[in-house]
């Protein structure tokens, strides 16, 4: 059974119609990518799934439970999210310890010490980081903390909203490897949103191309590699990601 089923999703913010009828299914253990440029509504789809944006029409089903306005505690334990900007997603006055202890306290876990230490080890941060503040960490380290915070509730599904686009290329590789390893170890389901086709091709088995709030087309990774895109917009996107020798394109 598909753990995530989005059908005919619309999201409106007042006058703005950000998502116009997007449908897709993600299977258990799959990694699914959503690609698009700014304003395509790709991040809004994620936010609608996790309840940070209103579902104006359509349905979102996670593990058989159709989501309404209120999300249950069980929902939060099943599904977590990593945000784009690691500088904005950690509370500036909370130590890493507090950041990781908070979800455990909310959901009433008891072996908090052990869980916090295990989470830090798992994302490759030493225990020496436990009592630091976010401003003492680099962007990559902060993103590792954000991943640890999402993982500490042992969710089945992770929503990744441009998790590496604010990072340097070399740090991006480390974070992508970390996400890859965690998925293999825990059998997680990912929905990854990115503007970078190469990142999505590396991380996801299937992907959805979005433009102006609508789905343009769905492709498999192999289809993308074989350049089997049907829609002109997807081809433009592919061409743009291939590198950009402007002299070649303008003779």
């Amino acid at each position: 059974m598909a753990p995530i089923d989005v059908s005919g999703l619309h999201v409106r913010f007042g006058e703005v119609h950000a998502v116009r009828g997007v449908s897709f299914r993600v299977a258990e253990g799959e990694s699914y990518g959503i690609v698009g440029e700014s304003g395509s509504g790709k991040s809004t789809v994620l936010r609608a799934i996790c309840g940070l944006a209103p579902i104006s029409a359509g349905a979102v089903t996670v593990a058989g439970e159709e989501l309404g306005r209120r999300r249950s505690a069980g929902f939060h334990r099943r599904l977590q999210m990593v945000f784009q900007d690691p500088y904005a997603s950690l509370h500036p006055r909370h130590t890493i310890d507090r950041v990781l202890a908070e979800p455990l306290a909310i959901h009433g876990f008891d072996d908090r010490e052990a869980r916090i230490l295990r989470a830090l080890d798992e994302v490759g941060l030493g225990r020496g980081f436990r009592f630091r503040y976010p401003h003492q960490l680099s962007g990559g380290q902060r993103q590792r903390v954000a991943i640890a915070r999402a993982l500490i509730l042992e969710p089945r599904v992770m929503l990744l909203d441009e998790p590496t686009s604010a990072l340097d290329a070399s740090i991006q590789a480390e974070v992508l490897n970390l996400l890859d390893r965690l998925r293999a170890e825990r059998g997680l389901t990912y929905i990854l949103v990115s503007h970078d086709l190469a990142v999505v091709a590396h991380m996801c088995e299937r992907l959805l191309v979005m433009q102006h709030g609508q789905a343009v087309e769905e492709l498999t990774r192999d289809g993308l590699r074989a350049r089997a895109a049907r829609e002109p917009y997807t081809r433009d996107l592919l061409a743009a990601s291939e590198g950009s020798r402007p002299a070649e394109s303008s003779p």
Partner: peptide
């Protein structure tokens, strides 16, 4: 080398 590629790698 650390950049992911569409071709995979």
């Amino acid at each position: 080398n650390c950049l992911p590629r569409i071709e995979g790698g």
